[in-house]
Amino acid sequence: MAKIGILGGTFHPIHNGHLYIAKQALAAFGFDELWILPAGLPPHKMVEGHISRVQRLKICEAAIADEPAMRIIPDEIFKTSTSYTYETLQAFHVAYPQHQFSFIIGEDSLNSFDSWVHPEIICQLADIVVAVRNDKNQDYHSLEARTKELSKKYGGTFSIIPSENMPISSTMLRKMLAEGADVSMYMPKLAYEYIKEHRLYQVTMEDDLKLRKEIQEDLKNNLKKSRYEHTLGVMYTACSLAMRYQYSMTKARFAGLLHDWAKYLSDEEQLAYCKKHHIEITPAEEQAPYLLHAKIGAYVARKRYGIDDEDVCHAILVHTTGVPNMNLLDKILFTADYIEPNRKDAPRLEDIRMMAFENLDTAVLMILEDSIKYIEDTKRPMDPTTMDTYEYYKTHSYKE
């Protein structure tokens, strides 16, 4: 028989305070495992913000990656109906009849325990552990009286575990993240890195349908039919990769739409456009002016269409050559440009398409390998950034 502690919550997002309570409970009660149970639709609070359930789950998984005694249990998070603790515990007893469960709650939950659905069933199926703030003003006498009252009323076992009064909350973190603040001191390292990579909890650009239609109309009027179809293919492929890697589809959509905006311009016209608008031209771009369409696309996104999102503009800027240590949207657009459905003549194309949805870094490396070979075989000038990017991903990706 295993002793299992369960810590439930919305974890929106999970933070060091949650993990502190989990570790205190593990040490105090000798649990064999501590289960982290993210809620899907909790009965007592709304889950606000543009964060999917999968993203909350991924943040939790990252948070406990270095905690061998902890497990993420996803049973509640994908439920379409409201999650009730008594139902979850009933399901656990059916699935794990040999386990002994303890359910960890906070002081607020202790005070509102009578309002929970079927508290009597909860007490039959699990011991209740109450994490309370170790505060000099804490009224332990009242807390103990409350636990005795509930124990007598519902027949359960209630235990109190003191915890440090950490000045941290998920609400506070959401506000700080929206303001662009560094919250690394409040969260496990890998969880914070996941949030930063996926640009979560930030004020993100809205999907402006009117602007999107305006851009598409401009592209349709200016680009060749084949280039326009390629652009739409890149947009839809970028959206698919964004869904796969839990990234903003809106950002991916606009990056895909605008990446080849300047392709209707000749080499001479691109050089002239950059000189007119004071866009820097490198020696490599002087030799291969077609590379300038990326810089012009990023410039047009800002100046013509008012898109000032740094991620979108940067992805457009580097989508041809790549850049070492690309961010997630950079890699999404770089890859979508290569694998979109209208492309037919690239080597290893089907393999790269499959790899793009398995391991994006490896797909990027494969694209760079084949692109460099093509440039060398055709004796075209190569931007040094392409080789720098290849050298980076040669040591930072893994091919099976």
Rank of each mutant, 00 (worst) to 15 (best):
T362W: 11
M382Q: 14
Y201F: 15
D309G: 06
L37N: 01
S142W: 08
A301F: 02
L110Q: 08
R353Q: 15
A2G: 01
T80V: 07
I307L: 14
L317Q: 11
S81F: 01
T237F: 04
L368S: 11
S151N: 08
A63V: 02
P341E: 14
P74C: 06
D108P: 06
Y390V: 03
D267I: 00
M235T: 15
L360F: 11
L41H: 15
D75S: 12
N359D: 15
K263C: 09
L173Y: 03
K251Q: 15
K275A: 14
I128F: 03
H259E: 10
Q55W: 02
I64F: 10
Y264R: 04
H118Q: 13
T171F: 03
S109T: 13
E217W: 04
I4W: 01
E376F: 03
S371H: 07
A191F: 07
E391P: 00
L349R: 04
R304H: 13
D267K: 11
A262W: 08
E149N: 09
C239G: 04
D182H: 06
R174F: 08
L26M: 07
E149K: 11
F103R: 03
N222E: 07
R253Y: 11
D32W: 00
E269F: 03
F78W: 14
Q202I: 05
F92S: 00
G17S: 09
D370Q: 12
T157I: 11
W35L: 04
L150G: 03
S266Q: 02
T85F: 00
F11V: 07
A363E: 07
H198T: 07
L209Q: 12
P347R: 13
